[in-house]
Amino acid sequence: MISVKNLKKSFGKLEVLKDISIDIHPQEVVVVIGPSGSGKSTFLRCLNLIESITEGHVYIEGVDLTDKKTDINNIRTEVGMVFQQFNLFPHKTVLENIVLPMMVVRKWNKADSKEKAYALLEKVGLSDKADVYPDSLSGGQKQRVAIARALGMEPKIMLFDEPTSALDPEMVGEVLEVMKQLAKEGMTMVVVTHEMGFAREVGDRVVFMDEGVLVEENEPSELFGNPQNERTQAFLSKIL
């Protein structure tokens, strides 16, 4: 579903991603962990070309993102993204946040879009917040709206970039719960996170990244219980 081949990314002279290759299969939940500055967010942002790719290829359902002829906007509708800082549109109400891309990008009519948006809000447990502005929501609520907004495009893949890192501790659970539900429904997900509990419980595969390299990947029980690489061991011993 996603195929990454020899991906390299540099910011000026700084090489952030050094030759990363990985395949992500349909309905798989891949959790990316690693110390900050390891390039895991950059890796994720390359998967929908929010970050430009310096070298190598990323294929989404066989389509090469780096090919100049690829209609990237079209691919992005299939790849939803959730950000650490939520990035809701502050000048739009919760409902409008979800409806806007439906109407503008998918060209659905207003009535259909609204109906879908209400269904999504119900799914993330925020039906009563449809007409308020994002400003008045808590962090956890904002992130759930952001998830609903991304789902509104009916994507085949969801990317999560540290979705709970900017939240107060008591709000982490409600967001993870929505993500778990999504995983259960068979969504293909790539999740960058520091929530090891989530990685263990929901991840089909955990990937450890360090200094721009994909150091080790395995099933969660194996990677957490029996890490092979010493960098993985060092990282896990610090956080577990």
Binding site: N48, I50, N73, N74, R76, T77, V79, G80, M81, F83, Q85, N87, L88, F89, P101, V104, V105, A146, R149, A150, M153
Partner: peptide
């Protein structure tokens, strides 16, 4: 904030 444009782009705009 750059995140606004990034979010909009990520939705396919």
């Amino acid at each position: 904030d750059r995140g606004q444009a990034e979010a909009a782009h990520s939705l396919g705009m």
